Deep mutational scan, measured.
Amino acid sequence: MTFKAIINGKTLKGETTTEAVDAATAEKVFKQYFNDNGLDGEWTYDDATKTFTVTE
Rank of each mutant, 00 (worst) to 15 (best):
M1G: 09
M1H: 13
T2L: 13
T2V: 13
T2Y: 08
T2C: 15
F3H: 05
K4P: 06
K4W: 10
K4D: 04
K4V: 12
A5S: 03
A5T: 04
A5Q: 02
A5D: 05
A5E: 05
A5W: 08
I7R: 01
N8G: 04
N8C: 15
G9A: 07
G9F: 15
G9E: 02
G9D: 03
G9I: 14
G9H: 09
K10D: 07
L12Q: 10
L12Y: 14
K13P: 05
K13G: 07
K13H: 12
K13V: 10
K13N: 10
K13T: 08
G14H: 14
G14N: 06
G14T: 13
E15R: 04
T16F: 15
T16L: 15
T17A: 07
T17H: 08
T17C: 14
T18I: 15
T18K: 02
E19V: 15
E19D: 09
E19L: 12
A20T: 04
A20E: 03
V21P: 14
V21R: 12
D22P: 00
D22I: 01
D22Y: 02
D22F: 02
D22T: 04
A23R: 12
A23S: 07
A23I: 06
A23D: 03
A24S: 09
A24C: 12
A24F: 08
A24T: 09
T25E: 12
T25L: 05
T25I: 07
T25N: 06
A26L: 02
A26M: 02
E27H: 09
E27A: 09
K28D: 05
K28Q: 10
V29H: 12
V29R: 07
F30R: 00
F30M: 03
F30Q: 00
F30W: 02
F30T: 00
F30H: 00
K31Y: 04
K31S: 04
K31W: 04
K31L: 07
K31D: 01
Q32D: 08
Q32E: 10
Y33I: 10
Y33V: 05
F34P: 01
F34Q: 01
F34N: 00
F34S: 04
F34H: 00
N35F: 14
N35D: 10
N35E: 13
D36Y: 08
D36T: 09
D36A: 12
N37K: 14
N37A: 13
N37Q: 14
G38M: 07
G38H: 09
G38V: 06
L39G: 04
L39N: 03
D40E: 13
G41C: 09
E42P: 05
E42M: 09
W43C: 01
T44S: 12
T44Q: 08
Y45M: 00
Y45H: 00
D46R: 02
D46L: 03
D46N: 09
D47N: 07
D47S: 09
D47K: 07
A48F: 10
A48R: 10
A48S: 10
A48L: 10
A48D: 11
A48H: 08
T49Q: 04
T49S: 10
T49D: 03
K50G: 04
K50D: 01
K50T: 02
K50E: 02
T51Q: 03
T51H: 01
F52Q: 00
T53W: 12
T53Y: 13
T53I: 11
T53C: 08
V54D: 01
V54Q: 03
T55Y: 10
T55I: 10
E56A: 09
